[in-house]
């Protein structure tokens, strides 16, 4: 019942940036004040962070938000 919504598939390279800095998920989670499970979900692409958290991640890695998060495709 109801209309199906078009969703965006968002990819990110958080795991690459984290690996470059030789950080564990736990350490990154501590730095941006979230749980390790949240970092794991973001890296796997199972959870899209809020705009605020995305900015916090970008700020931490000293990158532009679009350098970390980008649209990969669309799905229903």
């Amino acid at each position: 019942m109801g209309k199906t919504k078009m969703k965006l598939k968002i990819k990110n390279n958080v795991h690459v940036l984290r690996a470059e800095r030789r950080m564990s998920q736990e350490q990154l989670a501590g730095e941006i004040e979230v749980t390790r499970a949240t970092i794991n979900s973001i890296e796997k692409g199972n959870y899209n962070p809020s705009l605020e958290l995305a900015f916090r991640i970008a700020e931490f890695f000293e990158k532009d938000i679009t350098e970390i998060f980008s649209v990969e495709g669309r799905y229903e």
């Binding site: 979230v34 949240t38 962070p49």
Partner: peptide, 8 residues
């Protein structure tokens, strides 16, 4: 109930 971050 845990609400430690936005995902939770």
């Amino acid at each position: 109930m845990h609400e430690r971050d936005e995902r939770e």
